[in-house]
């Protein structure tokens, strides 16, 4: 699926008690770019990904993906947007431990329209294999190692062929070799298919490969081109 351009205007996201978690006066990201977000712990990197995926509602400002105004959508519309356009790799993988690797990778098939289910399942399997895992249907994912789970989470994010891939520290628990491979794969995704990739990472190897690096400090964006 071809990517979508992201445009943010005057964005503020507040947490409980009115504390401002994130402020983005202005930001544009072209489709087909691989963007890396970095910053100290607690800076608001995850918050940024939650905001641009619509998981977290905005307090003020606008988020646009192409001509879709995410910041003005209601809950069900934002869920539909995520379902159809976004692949998300969560910070601590968040798998269904009792499902198999295949079950997790193809989870979107459970609630997707009937005509898309087979596609999601085959792409899920494909991605698992590409990431060096077999689509074993019998072994529950709770028995996989941290790095393996991370890769299952990546396969899940890609199974529904999203236009936007958001990844929160995808290489955190991988060894150098696997981290590099995954980093290559993710970058490739953006470049080959024109997808938009936004990855939060502390991995210098990924920083080096990225088209663009965004720094977040204390909830404020400090953009810098790669």
């Amino acid at each position: 699926m071809a990517g979508l351009p992201l445009r943010i205007e005057g964005l503020t996201v507040s947490g409980e008690g009115g504390r401002t978690l994130l402020e983005v006066p202005e930001l544009s990201i072209e489709p087909g770019t691989a963007v890396v977000v970095r910053g100290p712990s607690g800076a608001g990197k995850s918050t940024f990904l939650y905001a641009v995926s619509g998981i977290l509602p905005v307090t003020a400002g606008r988020i646009l993906w192409g001509d879709q105004v995410l910041s003005e959508m209601n809950d069900p519309a934002r869920a539909a947007f995520r379902r159809n356009q976004v692949g998300f790799v969560f910070q601590d993988h968040l798998l269904f431990e009792e499902l198999s690797a295949f079950g997790n990778a193809s989870i979107a098939a459970l609630y997707a329209p009937k005509n898309r289910r087979a596609g999601i399942r085959s792409t899920g399997t494909e991605q698992l294999e590409k990431l060096g895992l077999s689509a074993d249907e019998h072994r529950i994912s709770g028995t996989y190692s941290g790095g393996e789970r991370q890769r299952i989470a990546v396969a899940r994010a890609l199974a529904a062929d999203p236009a936007i891939v958001l990844a929160d520290e995808p290489t955190a628990s991988l060894d150098r070799e696997n981290a590099d491979r995954l980093a290559d794969d993710l970058m490739q995704l953006a470049r080959d298919n024109g997808r938009t990739l936004i990855a939060v990472t502390h991995d210098p190897a990924m920083h080096a490969q990225a088209d663009r690096v965004i720094d977040i400090v204390d909830g404020r964006i400090q953009d810098s081109a790669a």
């Binding site: 869920a79 995520r82 379902r83 269904f96 609630y111």
Partner: peptide
Amino acid sequence: SRRLALLRALGAPGRF
């Protein structure tokens, strides 16, 4: 709730 929230974060319809 963590599982259910995860589903919704992934974009599963509320009805699901």
